[in-house]
Design a protein around this nucleic acid. Structure first.
Lengths: 124, 124
DNA sequence: GTCTTGCTCAACCAAATGGTTGCAAACGAG
DNA sequence: CTCGTTTGCAACCATTTGGTTGAGCAAGAC
């Protein structure tokens, strides 16, 4: 808890969103804050199960909970989304770059006929 | 497999990326295609374990495998990333919108004093 | 005070996950 | 054909996960 390393964070965030109920909860919380009971109502699972899901989302940093009498209003923390999009975009861009480089290589090969094409060696 | 519904897809993609080894594999495949053995080398787990990880990534649609003699070169399919970013961006935008609307509402309330403020009703 | 509501905690259970080992298939090399 | 290399599959094991039920706590309602 003291040092939430980005790696650990990413583990939890991706894992949290791998469950359809939790994704649905996030979707609904993006529209409005809600209590545990309100969130649990549409699903056929018990309130306790939803409470567990909320805990997973909270541990991932996706949801924060305050107090209002007995109720525990849940609030979406959209900030964490950035962590994911940064990770995803980084490697997507890298892959796309590689793709365009491959295109260029193929074009060059087409020019210089069938020469020795040592280029894409192992990236050790 | 016949009808990979987007929901199911998202389950698998998010779950696949919730493991640090699998994220690392994706990161390395974004630089260059690689065989199972090459991918397994840096880790302390067995080749079979990495083979399993590759299967998870393949089932999620993140990786495709071709054949070259005994080797099975792995290739990153960056397309699936879009599915995630679309999902994420959708709800992040929604949350941000709500945030700015709340700001506006507060400003309006400050103007018109304490009127009836029915706005954020349940999202049935 | 007692009651009811809203939620969490604890114990338990079945299924999935991530790892292991051993074996077999596919393929090129000799 | 036989051998080594690379990979996938099956069985097994420990841990995690997503669900259940039952009890308990906190806070307004009576």
């Amino acid at each position: 808890m003291t040092a939430p390393q980005p790696d650990d964070r990413l583990n939890r965030v991706f894992a949290a969103l791998s469950d359809p109920i939790r994704r649905d909860i996030v979707a609904r919380l993006s529209l409005a804050d809600a209590t545990v009971g309100e969130l649990a109502e549409p699903y056929e699972v018990s309130t306790q199960a939803v409470s567990k899901h909320l805990k997973v989302l909270e541990d991932a940093g996706l949801v924060s909970r305050s107090r209002d009498a007995q109720k525990r209003p849940c609030h979406l923390e959209a900030e964490v989304f950035d962590l994911m999009t940064k990770w995803i975009e980084r490697y997507r861009r890298q892959a796309e770059e590689r793709f365009t480089r491959l295109d260029a290589l193929l074009a060059a090969m087409d020019d210089t006929d069938t020469q020795d094409t040592r280029e894409e060696g192992a990236a050790s």
